[in-house]
């Protein structure tokens, strides 16, 4: 089975890009399943179901979504492997711009959109910088100049990535993406022992453990203070 991790800021167009790409994969006779990770709510699983794609969804709720992803990705891989699909795609929203769900040796795709502003590539950390393929969406509604500037900024934070433009509405570009993500020789049956490409930020303070009161005496563990001096 091929495993592909797709991630990107909320509402950047991940689901549309994946759905259009699956259409092209299916035409080649490949079967695809999706594991959708989100934080509080998603109904994207319905979109996948309607498209006839087997889907599992995981909501992290009160837990850090990216930590939740890593703690579940092996189980999800087993689910995909046992269902016998050719390709399993995991989809997760990068919520804090510092985390990234990418795994060494597993293809990583980051989806970001032209509308998010030209400084966005600078603000997103490892999720963008360590991706193999960067998909830029919503190019149909901004000017050619903005598209070029945005792509060149992405290139300067991740020159090694393949940068693709995809229109999530018409699917333009998704066929091309589908030709880059499947590799017959890849066969993932477990992720045990594999490593994340980038360590997730450490965060264990009293608020992680449910503290709600404000003030220094309630703060314990990993605490840092903002520098307010001139």
């Amino acid at each position: 089975m091929n495993l592909i991790t797709v991630s990107g800021p909320p509402s950047s167009g991940k689901t549309s890009v994946i759905l259009k790409t699956i259409e092209s994969l299916k035409k080649r006779g490949l079967s695809v399943a999706v594991a959708k990770f989100d934080c509080l709510y998603t109904d994207d699983d319905v979109l996948y179901k309607n498209a006839g794609v087997p889907v599992k969804k995981g909501l992290s709720g009160a837990l850090c979504p990216d930590h939740y992803f890593v703690s579940n990705v092996e189980e999800v891989t087993q689910w995909g492997y046992k269902s016998g699909v050719d390709v399993l795609i995991s989809e997760s929203a990068g919520l804090c711009n510092r985390c990234s769900p990418y795994i060494k040796g597993i293809k990583a795709i980051c989806v970001i959109d032209n509308l998010s502003g030209i400084n966005t590539p600078k603000k997103i950390g490892p999720m963008l910088k360590s991706a193999d393929i960067v998909v830029i969406t919503k190019g149909d509604i901004v000017s050619q100049a903005e598209r070029e500037v945005f792509a060149s900024r992405v290139n300067s934070v991740n020159p090694k990535a393949t940068i693709m433009h995809i229109n999530g509405l018409t699917g333009q570009g998704s066929f091309e993406l589908s030709t880059l993500i499947y590799d017959e020789k890849d066969n993932i049956d477990t992720l045990k022992g594999k490593e994340l490409r980038f360590p997730m930020p450490s965060a264990l303070c009293s608020y992680c453990l449910g503290e709600t009161r404000i003030g220094e005496s309630y703060q314990m563990g990993n605490i840092r203070k903002i520098n307010l001096e001139d």
Binding site: N114, G117, G139, D140, I141, V142, S143, Q144, E146
Partner: peptide
């Protein structure tokens, strides 16, 4: 590409 619904953002 130059298309109809393009805007400056």
């Amino acid at each position: 590409q130059l298309s109809q619904n393009m805007n400056f953002v």
